[in-house]
């Protein structure tokens, strides 16, 4: 396993005593090299916090993250710098994640400079190579971000993430801000790059169609927890958790949704004040007394498939 996350917790303090936003509540999963692990869930479920914990933009409250067998939660400055060479991130908003005052060339050269990779000439060569990799013309180097469309900017963001030949790329909603025709271009590019460069992706999205297209293994998150986890087939064909079932049935599709549509009532509860027992119980159409009392254990359904529900 390239990435192993174990019982990871992140609580953000709120004003007042003992009040926290419980953004991530004991999440465990692992991603094998060359594969794409997908995290799917609605807004506020903690998927972006999880991404930021993994690339060490946040410090965890508890738990461990192993990368290539090493615990990276204890890394010092030096170790962190080395880790970040191997783990990069692509952000959702291609308008906010590029520095408007830096040319494409300097955006791409920056990481090379920071890590003292190559000579000046080699770096220039690398910039041209990176632009080629993501399907942009190498003459775009001297241009500024505002001269590009959203899709082109996202290509620049991907090129920047590739600059140092990382092993892991964390993609946080990389196509959500793009129009569908452009979205397809970027998804195809990501699939090609993964194969050509042997990359491992952690792919975060709220769009189930996109997640199914991209991911080998998937974790479904609700209120800071992974409620169901498995291979693509486990989640899309053999889903067992009532939340996964409702989520999938809510996806609009021609001629009605996949299977019987389950309309959940209400909104997800606040992560600052989660309900007792199973966090999904207040909205769960099948909830029983035990669900409102006790937190459900993670049940193993097959070698690859687990779900946290009392009723399974």
């Amino acid at each position: 396993m390239l990435l192993e996350v174990n019982e990871l917790v992140k609580h953000f303090p709120l004003p007042g005593r003992n009040r926290f936003v419980r953004a991530v509540n004991g999440v465990s999963f692992a991603a094998a090299p060359g594969q794409t692990f997908g995290l799917v869930g609605e807004s506020g479920c903690g998927k972006s916090t999880l991404a930021r914990l993994i690339v060490r933009l946040y410090r965890e409250t508890a738990g461990t993250i192993r990368f290539g067998g090493r615990d990276i939660t204890a890394l010092g400055r030096r170790g962190l710098k080395e880790f970040r060479r191997q783990a990069q991130m692509v952000f959702q908003d291609p308008y906010a994640s590029l520095n408007p005052r830096m040319t494409v060339r300097s955006t791409l050269i920056d990481p090379l400079r920071v890590y003292r990779v190559g000579t000046a000439r080699e770096r220039e060569k690398r910039v041209a190579e990176l632009l080629g990799l993501v399907g942009l013309d190498e003459r775009y180097g001297p241009r500024y971000p505002h001269e590009f469309s959203g899709g082109q900017r996202q290509r620049i963001g991907i090129a920047r993430a590739l600059a140092l030949n990382p092993r892991l790329i964390v993609l946080d909603e990389p196509v959500s801000a793009l129009d569908v025709s452009v979205q397809a271009q970027i998804l195809n590019l990501l699939v090609d790059l993964r194969e050509r460069l042997g990359l491992t992706y952690l792919f975060i999205s709220h769009d189930l169609g996109v997640v199914e297209y991209m991911c080998d293994h998937i974790g479904v998150m609700y209120l800071g927890c992974i409620v169901e986890k498995g291979t693509r087939e486990d989640i899309f064909q053999k889903r067992r958790h009532p939340y996964t079932q409702a989520l999938l049935s809510a996806v609009p599709a021609p001629g009605g949704a996949v299977g019987e549509q389950i309309i959940l009532g209400g909104d997800p509860p606040s992560p600052a004040d989660p309900p007792a027992g199973c966090y999904f119980s207040p909205r769960c159409p099948q909830a029983e007394d035990i669900c409102r009392r006790e937190k459900p254990p993670l049940k193993t359904l097959s070698a690859t498939h687990t779900a946290a529900c009392h009723l399974i």
Binding site: S149, G151, D179, V180, S181, V182, Q183, A184, Q185, L187, N188, V191, D207, L208, G209, V210, E212, Y213, M214, R232, F236, L248, V251, A253, V258
Partner: peptide, 20 residues
């Protein structure tokens, strides 16, 4: 053909070259 539909994984997505 650009939109990934549930149940069609594995097939390559069509994309419309160029921009609007």
């Amino acid at each position: 053909e650009c939109v990934p539909q549930i149940g069609m994984s594995g097939k390559r997505l069509n994309s419309i070259e160029g921009t609007v």
